[in-house]
Amino acid sequence: MQNNGLKPWLLQRLTALYLAVWALVILGKFLFAPPESFAAWQGWVGTPLCATGFLIAILALLGHAWIGLHEVFIDYLHDWRIRISALTLFGLLLLGSGLWLIRAVLSATLLG
């Protein structure tokens, strides 16, 4: 990926597109059929179609954020040691956040 500019650029736009569409789905849910309780919300998230949508959104968000951070670090962090350290730190942070989000969606699926 280091020597290829088009793929990450394209991936960032595709993930942004998916996230925008998914955000509209969530917004629509809250506007037109708001859940009456947290349990109802969990139940909705836990349906197979919805859970799949959320899991793709989580992966899209992680990919989008990773590419975005990589871009910022390439721009501003010129010392490769600092850049690798920052990428490792934020990579772990993203990975941890992603696993936590996936766990939340899967637990809703199990409850549902």
Partner: peptide, 12 residues
Amino acid sequence: FLDDRFRLFRCH
């Protein structure tokens, strides 16, 4: 030649 992280894609 342009399909590289720097040459073209530093343009934001």
